[in-house]
């Protein structure tokens, strides 16, 4: 059985207490709002993508639980300087990790530090907390008209 410590690893507590890249990004050329209607988590992701499809800068703000805050913080850290193609790969890998079978180990080679969030799959009601920022960023990049939702 997974223990609480698998979910609330020190890295996650650290990112909760001092989230990286927190705040508004101005100027930015993509941004989107994300909601988790179940728990009321709210997130705004701002991203500046250059002509070569590289994420030059990315920030987020909002309020949420430690899992959603740490996940957004880790996401921004891992994506700064990456290409949109890299984002797609990481998006799929993260999604797979959060919804994989309990016995599957996360692909640490692709995910890097993001693998600390693998513990959420043992906590079904918290998976959406971890994936909200990724869906929100996808909405931002796709310039979706509607806010992202995890439902």
């Amino acid at each position: 059985m997974f223990s609480l410590g698998d979910l609330y690893q020190q890295v996650i507590i650290d990112h909760t207490k001092s989230p990286r890249n927190f705040g508004k990004l101005d100027p930015c050329n993509h941004d989107a709002e994300g909601y988790n209607p179940l728990c009321g988590d709210q997130l705004h992701v701002y991203v500046q993508v250059n002509d070569s499809n590289i994420i030059e800068n990315i920030k987020f703000e909002g309020q949420g639980c430690s899992i959603s805050t740490a996940s957004a913080s880790l996401m921004t850290e891992s994506l700064k300087g990456k290409s949109l193609a890299d984002f797609e790969i990481l998006f799929d890998a993260f999604h797979d990790m959060a919804t994989a079978d309990l016995s599957d180990a996360p692909d640490e080679e692709v995910l890097g530090k993001l693998a600390v969030l693998a513990g959420v799959k043992e906590f079904p009601s918290r998976i959406k907390c971890a994936t909200l920022c990724w869906h929100t960023l996808k909405s931002a990049i796709d310039d979706a008209a509607e806010p992202a939702r995890t439902e």
Partner: peptide, 27 residues
């Protein structure tokens, strides 16, 4: 202070204490 209600809900659950965390359908 310092602990979001949803984290409380999860941590308490592992102590076998069932509470509700959320907006209680009263936003």
């Amino acid at each position: 202070d310092g602990v979001h209600p949803h984290d409380l809900g999860t941590i308490l659950d592992r102590e076998a204490v069932a509470i509700r965390a959320g907006h209680h359908c009263a936003m």
